[in-house]
Computed example of a mutant assay.
Amino acid sequence: MTTTGTTTRHRLLWIAGIGMVTAVAVGLLIVVLPHQEPAHAATPAPLPITTAAAGVAPVTLTDLARTALTDTTGSAGTVDHLITERWDVHSAVADGDVTSAMFPSRRELWRASDGRARTIDLLLAPGASTADIHAFVGPDAPTGRSVRNDYAAGTFAVAFAGRPPTDPDELADWLARNSTRDDAVIVGVTDLLLERVLTGRERAAVLTVLDGHTTLTYAGTSTDRAGRPGVAFTAASTASGGQSQYVFLIEAATGRFLASEQISTGGAPALKLTYPAVLSYRTYRQADTVAAIP
């Protein structure tokens, strides 16, 4: 698709109705007048979840927190090393009309304890034109090539500057960042998992907070988009103005996070979605520590 006229680019979480668009991370609100064309986005299928057989006790987040405390895999250094594949809604506003598209991307991140960092980004959109990618994501978006950026200490933008606290009550407040939305802790966790390799103790604290400060409940088992099996936990939310569902997929043997998703389940007529529709997903392909930034 091609846009003309003055274009404003935002990465969207949600279009709650014909009149309002909520932007992720940038904290902006775009007003879409009722006579304008609604946004439209094709979305991937949600992860299929197989419910537990009758009589089989569900895995609990408390169980996984205990497991995480004993997990030391991937702890070989002091530099956090993450590989994440993700899918997000992007929008363009041109001549008062809003259209949206979704492009998958891959980021490899190294983050040292002194604040230095390196990222390698790749936009995984083989079916999209360069013009579309630049219109929706930005003029400097990597199209079919990887882009490396190095950051001096203190120059890499992050949601959380320090290590997560391990006291559950303190951690809950830290993750929510003073927000009173019903999904504040969950959004905080998804942001944290993009930035930090959690130690076993930190992961146990995060799982404990998810158990005590959210409505996440065991939903069954699934396989993530990298083909890895895990146990699924889901929670409903109306924080974005429509109905949505959050999903976390966690490895049973280690308590490690494999994936997370946000799914629209209703109340977003402007997007013309077929429900349920994935608005974003994160596949945590790798999370380990290394000795140095390469």
Rank of each mutant, 00 (worst) to 15 (best):
A92P: 04
S91N: 00
P142G: 09
R225S: 00
Q245F: 00
G154H: 07
A176H: 12
A252W: 02
T119G: 12
H10V: 07
A226D: 13
G241Q: 02
G266K: 02
M20A: 14
N149Y: 02
G77K: 04
T84D: 04
M102A: 15
G5S: 11
T234F: 00
A57F: 04
D114V: 12
G242W: 04
G138W: 01
D88Q: 12
A23Y: 06
H35P: 11
P276W: 07
A41F: 13
D88F: 15
T283P: 01
D80L: 02
L210H: 09
A236F: 08
A252L: 11
L193A: 09
R116E: 15
R116M: 13
P44A: 06
F136T: 00
E251Y: 00
T2Q: 13
V98C: 09
S260H: 02
H40E: 10
A23C: 15
A239K: 03
F233S: 01
L207I: 08
G230N: 05
L258Y: 02
H40R: 14
T208N: 03
R285E: 13
D88A: 09
T238I: 10
A23D: 15
V59F: 07
I133Y: 08
V31S: 13
A68N: 10
T22S: 14
L123H: 07
V24I: 13
R116V: 09
Y151S: 03
D150R: 08
S113L: 13
D173V: 11
L29Q: 14
A157P: 05
A128W: 07
Y284V: 02
L258G: 03
S260F: 00
M1Q: 09
W87V: 09
Q243I: 04
T2E: 14
A204I: 03
Q245V: 08
Y151D: 02
R282L: 08
A39T: 07
L216V: 02
T99S: 14
D183S: 06
A53T: 03
G96P: 07
A219F: 00
V206W: 03
F233N: 01
V93Y: 00
G74S: 05
S179C: 01
V187Q: 12
P164Q: 11
A236L: 12
L175E: 09
T22R: 15
A159W: 08
H90Y: 15
G77Y: 06
A112I: 02
D183N: 08
T2I: 14
A152P: 01
A235Q: 11
F136G: 01
A23Q: 11
T143W: 08
G27H: 12
V147G: 03
D183I: 01
A45V: 10
I18T: 10
W110Q: 09
G220P: 07
F248M: 09
A287N: 01
I15K: 15
D88G: 04
T22L: 15
G255R: 06
D95M: 05
W174H: 13
D167W: 06
E251S: 06
D132I: 00
G162T: 14
A277T: 10
E170C: 03
A25M: 06
D63L: 03
A125K: 10
I133C: 06
T60H: 05
T130M: 11
T155L: 03
L69P: 02
G230I: 03
S146F: 09
I250D: 03
F160T: 01
